[in-house]
Design a protein around this nucleic acid. Structure first.
Lengths: 140, 140
DNA sequence: TAACTACTTTATAATTATTCTAAAGTATGT
DNA sequence: ACATACTTTAGAATAATTATAAAGTAGTTA
């Protein structure tokens, strides 16, 4: 096998810390997801389509699902449900909130929403996180 | 057909206002959902199972889906997505929020959460609603 | 480096939630 | 009661996701 060059170290590290061996397919997925200036949202289907579009040799659906799940479990991706019951993933793992605008998802920076009052967790439980969704509609 | 007695009027009205004729199946679903002291959460699958369990003549899956959808579109039910990408419905249609605790959903009264700061809607848009999910985990 | 073993990839089948279809049944206006 | 448009139903179809198992590959060991 070809020796991995150093410029991929960061993407390989994300895989390793997710318990995944850095295979070619996984490294390409990791690079596609994290080698960018801006974070973004995607469904597995969208990821698969955009990555496979230009590839002569397609990466299989199962590999996309496996890799995305492992990255998510390790905390490298955040998951949320869309209205149509599909999973959407976010490469922005910092605490933040969302606008939902007719199927379009827009990030809201964490500091744009603050609480005056929050309930206490039931006994024996503690709060893991708080997520706000602001649903939008067209003016008038 | 037997004349509907008055005690079902309220359940029939919910159907009528959802654009549905009050057939026997629909009236039974409407009663099952709304003829109770406390509101509750359910998935279509759960609703179907609990209603059909004791019935000699089962109501079909399609009827459950159709009826629940129409009730939801008319505003008699609220819908939200669970973590496992199934739709969950809430007979509590007042504005409120939720705890998510390992698949269990618990209502949070609206006045238990208040905001200090909320972002403005992007131009051309307005806020339809704001929903908060507080995810719980076990204490240590 | 060779060889081994456990982990991966892949195509395909299976599953789950949901929607569609079309034939037989029913509510409602007249 | 008649006609008609709306319903119900079983079963097929779809979509997203997960499982399977055979062939391939990474990492370890000798």
């Amino acid at each position: 096998m070809p020796k991995m060059n150093n410029k991929n170290k960061i993407f390989i590290d994300k895989l390793r810390s997710s318990g995944l061996r850095p295979t070619n397919q996984r490294v390409e997925i990791s690079k596609f997801l994290f080698n960018r200036k801006k974070t973004f949202h995607f469904t597995v289907e969208e990821l698969k389509n955009s990555m496979n579009l230009k590839r002569p040799k397609k990466i299989s659906t199962a590999t996309f699902y496996n890799t995305v799940h492992a990255l998510k479990s390790a905390g490298h991706l955040k998951e949320f449900s869309l209205e149509n019951n599909t999973s959407c993933y976010d490469t922005n793992i910092t605490s933040h909130h969302h606008f939902f605008d007719n199927g379009r998802v827009i990030d809201i920076k964490s500091d744009k929403i603050t609480f005056q009052k929050l309930p206490e967790a039931p006994k024996g439980k503690k709060i893991k996180n708080v997520e706000v969704v602001i649903r939008l509609e067209n003016n008038n």
